[in-house]
């Protein structure tokens, strides 16, 4: 673009001013070569003995950039106007598309994005969001959708969500028993051991293997609620033949409680039992034959004694 000359000006201008003048004439950011060309047009010698060297222009340009008189733009370009703000990261763009109660498929998320993103970047961002617990996957396969809340855990009595899996399990188990590979009792014991809510010990406190998302979703349990639930679970177990004398194994009570309170940790469970015992509300009974104790970590160990049973007063 031709630049208006300023020949015949009364006062000689500094190189900084000349650079700014060379840039002001342009509506878009210009490269260093274009700047040099514009400077030449306004009379700055770029050749000969009195030429202004590239280093001089560069240092002046750097000073102007540092003093925010000139702004550096992407692609080593310069302008007197500041560059536009960068677009928000893809993860934020994805999150912005979700309402608090909304579920969306991948396709609808992509449609809602303000800018188009590369598939690889999009997948990476989505995976990251799921990993950090800001998004939750609901369902599987083609029917999989995403939402900002976790998929609700089915109640212990609901068989619908896993009916198919369960049917397959029963079919395979029956086949194994019919072939005589394993006895029914053994198989049941194995299944019970593997399917029971597993507990991971961390130091003195223990937590059940419930995903963080689930733990976050569940509201904190107040002591009153927990006691109420404990009583209900206890009374429910007392209906079984094996607990007809109302002496219930603590581990069984814990299993029953995890069905009602999936986020309940062993430490919280024990703490509540101990508190109730101190208030003389329940009785904790020891087991003499500790070698027979199952799921020993779920029982309460105190003063070399293993408290294995509970009885409501």
């Amino acid at each position: 673009m031709p630049v208006e000359t300023t020949e015949g000006a009364a006062e000689p201008r500094s190189l900084d001013q000349l650079i700014r003048a060379a840039m002001t004439a342009e509506s878009r950011p210009i490269t260093f070569a274009q700047l040099k060309s514009n400077l030449k047009q306004i009379g700055v010698p770029t050749t000969g003995k009195k030429k202004v060297t590239d280093e001089t222009i560069h240092s002046s340009l750097a000073e102007l950039v540092s003093s925010a008189a000139v702004f550096e733009h992407p692609g080593k370009k310069y302008s007197v106007t500041p560059p536009p703000p960068p677009p928000p990261p893809l993860t934020e763009q994805i999150l912005a598309t979700f309402g608090s109660e909304e579920k969306k498929s991948v396709a609808s998320i992509k449609l809602g994005l303000p800018t188009t993103a590369k598939p690889a970047d999009f997948n990476k961002a989505l995976k990251h969001l799921v990993e950090v617990g800001q998004l939750f996957a609901h369902g599987r396969g083609k029917a999989q959708v995403y939402a900002r809340f976790a998929e609700p855990v089915p109640a212990w009595h609901e068989v619908g969500p896993n009916a198919k899996t369960f049917a397959t399990l029963v079919k395979n188990a029956r086949a194994l028993v019919e072939r005589g590979v394993v006895e029914a009792a053994q198989l049941l014991a194995l299944l019970r051991a593997n399917l029971a809510p597993t507990v991971v010990e961390t130091g003195s406190a223990s937590t059940s293997r419930v995903t963080d998302s689930e733990a976050k979703v569940k509201p904190p349990v107040s002591p009153t609620n927990l006691r109420g639930e404990l009583r209900e679970a206890y009374e429910y177990l007392c209906r079984f033949e094996e607990f007809r004398d109302r002496l219930v194994e603590i581990r069984r009570l814990y299993f029953e409680m995890t069905k009602r309170q999936p986020g309940l940790s062993v430490a919280d469970f024990h703490r509540e039992l101990e508190a109730m015992s101190n208030e003389w509300l329940i009785e904790l009974h020891q087991i003499n034959e500790v070698q027979l104790a199952q799921d020993r970590h779920l029982a309460i160990e105190r003063n070399d004694r293993l408290y294995y049973y509970i009885r409501w007063k």
Binding site: E242, R244, D245, I287, Y308
Partner: peptide, 27 residues
């Protein structure tokens, strides 16, 4: 002890049927 009783519970019931007293009062 409770554990021994639990392990013998079924055998005793089978053997003694209605003659055995094992209610919650006896724990």
């Amino acid at each position: 002890t409770i554990a021994l009783r639990d392990s013998l519970h079924a055998k005793m019931e089978r053997q003694f049927r209605d003659r055995i007293v094992m209610d919650s009062r006896m724990v």
